[in-house]
Simulated scan of single mutants.
Amino acid sequence: MFSDYSLAELSSIFVMQGFAGLILFSVFLLMALGLAIIFGQMGVINMAHGEFMILGAYVTYFTSQFFLNFIPDLFSVYFFVAMILAFIASGALGMLVEWLMIRRLYKRPLDTLLATWGLSLILQQFYRSVFGPREVGVELPSWMMGSLPLTDVVEVQINGLFVMALTIVITIAVALLMYKSNWGKQVRAVVQNRMMASAVGINTEKVDRYTFGLGCGIAGIAGSAFTMIGSTGPTSGQLYIVDTFLVVVFGGAQSLLGTIASAFTISQAQSTMEFFLSGSTAKVLTLLSVVIILMLRPQGLFVIKVRR
């Protein structure tokens, strides 16, 4: 596999694939952050998480079209507006879904899996009917175009650097929200002991709704980032949902640090193997490796002890 390349060529390949893996890591992490909040904090298996991401992607696309057609002078900043709108749209839909369906299914993980899988199919058909079956792509502002040369043969994409910077900012914001804010303390109190949290005056239903909305809103931001590296279609979210669940389970469902470490490990392994092997083979080998590790350590890379 490596014998056909010189040492210099292999070094360049690993650097370039490493950077591609970082871009994939950014999307995985943004998706997994939202899913980890929903699954880790609430015990809800949300199979429609990819569709919340694609809603954010569609919001980003239509925002770009609006700026391009009506206020082209401000097109260079449309993406920041699109991210906010994507977060609001996906978060609002998430809270609506929690109020209509999810709140009736707590402590029934299999039922949440089946219900959200059905919701996933409904949303896919809704997107197909409203936005059309064809994939669409956003036009990037000029300052996001191009690449920066690292060496004579290695270049990094500017939009990839932006996605990574966005991921760092969102991750820090989520960490501060979950571990430093009063609302984050309420969420962790509900996770550790729901009955006691309710007894001391915490509105657990409100915490659940906002937590689910936050997880879906972060998925919407992931959708905005996704538009920079791929086209948007009604079923695009399904391409990432399995990998995202893999990241959350492998890292430890209630551990932010575990989610970060897991997303980095899986994205780098998958990106590097895809260069030397086929994409399907790389996914199979990654899945097998994770399954073997989980057989030895079923709680994931990191685990947080909570009272039940």
Results as ranks from 00 to 15, higher is better:
D73V: 14
A189N: 04
F66M: 13
L140A: 10
E135P: 08
F302M: 10
G146E: 05
S278N: 12
Y179C: 09
L22W: 00
G201Q: 11
T259C: 14
E98A: 07
Y179H: 11
I304C: 06
M178S: 06
V59R: 01
M95H: 05
G213L: 14
G43M: 04
L121A: 03
M273G: 04
S289G: 15
P149G: 05
G217V: 06
G40V: 02
Q238T: 12
L296R: 13
F131S: 01
L74G: 08
F67Q: 03
I122G: 01
E274D: 14
V200G: 05
M101K: 03
V130Q: 08
V77H: 14
Q254D: 14
Y61N: 10
F66N: 08
G91C: 15
F14K: 10
V138S: 00
T281I: 14
V77D: 10
M145F: 05
M16L: 14
A199G: 09
A253R: 10
F264M: 13
D152V: 03
R308P: 05
V153H: 08
S271A: 13
S224D: 02
S26T: 05
T227C: 10
R308H: 07
D243S: 14
T167L: 04
L150N: 01
L113N: 04
V163K: 00
C216V: 06
S90K: 12
F79A: 08
M295E: 08
I292G: 05
W143F: 13
Y179G: 07
L285M: 13
F70Y: 12
F131Y: 12
S90W: 06
V154K: 02
R104H: 15
G220D: 11
L22F: 02
L119A: 00
V97I: 15
I266M: 04
L113K: 07
L22E: 00
Q65W: 09
D73M: 15
K206N: 11
V15K: 02
Q157Y: 00
V15R: 01
L113G: 04
T151L: 09
V174H: 00
S231G: 08
I218W: 04
N46R: 05
L246C: 11
G21C: 05
G43T: 07
V187S: 02
A165P: 02
Q65S: 15
G220V: 09
I218E: 01
L123F: 10
F67C: 07
L277G: 06
